[in-house]
Computed example of a mutant assay.
Amino acid sequence: MKTASAPSQLPFAPRPLPNELFSSWVLRIAHANCVSPEELMIGFQCRHSDLPSLSSLDWGLPLAFLNAMATFSRTSVSSLGRLDLRKRLPQSERALLLRWGVSDRSQRLRRLRTGYAFCPPCISLQAYVHVRWEWAFPALLRCHIHKSPLRHGCPTCGEDNPLPFGSSPAVAPVLCWSCGAKLTFTTSSSRQRQIAGAQLFVEQIYRAALRAANPDAALLGAATGTQLRCFVEDLLQLLAWYPSHELSIQSTDPRNLHFAFRTEILTIIGSLIMDALPGSVPRGKQNRLRNGCVLWLRVLALLSHREAGLIETSSQRWPAALRRRLASALNQHVRSRSQSSPFRGRFFRPGLEYIECLEFRDLSAENEIKIRNSGI
């Protein structure tokens, strides 16, 4: 689509699907009109040159942009607005999302899009291949429909953005747009067994929090879903900076590079949450307190003095029981100044590599507190 010939309205405009990302719909629009996503957006910008440039096609879409895109695609503004992740998470100032690694490739609008995992059974059953919005969150490892692990990238060429958006599985198999390899392979039962216990517990409460539902009343007293989501995201982004001595290129499935690393992190997070749950047996409660302190000390051993201060400030948005556990561990950590850590490995891998695939919410709550106190 050349700028000189960009139409005022697109000839073909597939309807947005209620559960997809906005950028996924844009790529389906491009496919339907036989142009690249980059050409599509250049044509749109030619027609609407007065609009400011976008920082994201998935988060915080301006109303002026939505109005113009609604006219361009002959779609209602309300339908497009519902695809915005910020509208789906109205209580969140920012979310922890997957993103692309550092790359200058832009033909599929990578700079403007959030990253994604995908469920092979799901894409084989979709009328048109697209990305479901919940596939963009690093704390979710499984498809909530098929209960199978989500996949990252093409199993053959490693392309991390492999889906052929807009193609129909009913007409042709779902193949990687880059190399043509089949994407609807099944995950082995051994891989499925790796997602269990603490990870499933974290997923359960995190998925409920994303849908603005509060956790069960038995969980951490009066804690809200938002408080638990903040805790999960703070710990996930913190631990993603650090390598694990148990992971290497040999032990990490090359077809799903970050799966084992995320699983390990979520196991630690789930253990910390379960350790803080109320108990009915005093001795059992004392054991959990000791175990929880050991877990926290393992985490705190990773941190610099500044990072420990940031996590303490950020904990103001956590459930009270988890704040108390952290405070107790911080006191002991300051006294012991332990330098040992089970995470420190000989090679910084895959921690530093994985960190490039996360989009971060500010770990510290200091800015939020300052704004609130200033009355802004």
Rank of each mutant, 00 (worst) to 15 (best):
A213Y: 12
G270Q: 00
L51R: 02
C122E: 07
A213W: 10
L300S: 01
L66R: 04
W133L: 07
N331L: 15
C119F: 08
S56F: 04
E20F: 02
H144W: 08
Q250G: 00
G292E: 01
H130I: 07
F165C: 07
E368I: 13
E366T: 14
L83T: 09
S36Q: 03
H152T: 06
H146I: 06
S271I: 00
A223R: 03
L97F: 14
N161T: 08
K147P: 04
G60K: 04
G197F: 11
F65I: 04
T252H: 01
Q194N: 10
P90I: 08
K370Q: 15
V77Y: 11
S168V: 09
L140K: 02
L10P: 06
S92C: 12
S168Q: 14
D160I: 08
S124I: 06
G279V: 00
A172C: 11
I205A: 08
L98D: 06
E134N: 10
R142D: 07
S73D: 05
L112P: 07
L235I: 03
K285I: 03
L235Y: 02
R113V: 08
I311S: 03
I311E: 04
T263R: 00
I369F: 15
G180A: 11
L302Y: 02
F12A: 12
F137P: 05
R191Y: 09
R283T: 01
L163T: 09
C157E: 06
P282R: 02
G221H: 05
T252K: 00
N256V: 00
Y206N: 05
Q204W: 12
G221R: 06
E353K: 11
T75G: 07
L220V: 04
T252R: 01
T71K: 12
A139Q: 14
P215T: 05
V102K: 12
L109T: 09
V294Y: 03
N67H: 14
G292C: 01
G225A: 05
E307I: 02
M41G: 01
G180T: 10
E368Q: 15
G43Q: 00
A6N: 09
A136L: 05
D234R: 03
E366Q: 14
Y116E: 05
N291E: 04
W241A: 03
S271F: 01
R317D: 13
A301C: 04
L235G: 01
C176T: 10
E366M: 13
P342C: 13
R191Q: 15
F231E: 01
L57E: 05
H258K: 00
A327G: 09
L51G: 02
G81P: 06
T313V: 11
H144L: 09
L112R: 07
W177E: 07
T184H: 07
N287K: 03
L57R: 05
R113W: 08
A170V: 11
A170C: 10
Q316V: 14
P164E: 06
E233I: 02
L330W: 10
G309M: 07
I265F: 00
L210R: 04
M41P: 02
R142V: 09
F118Q: 07
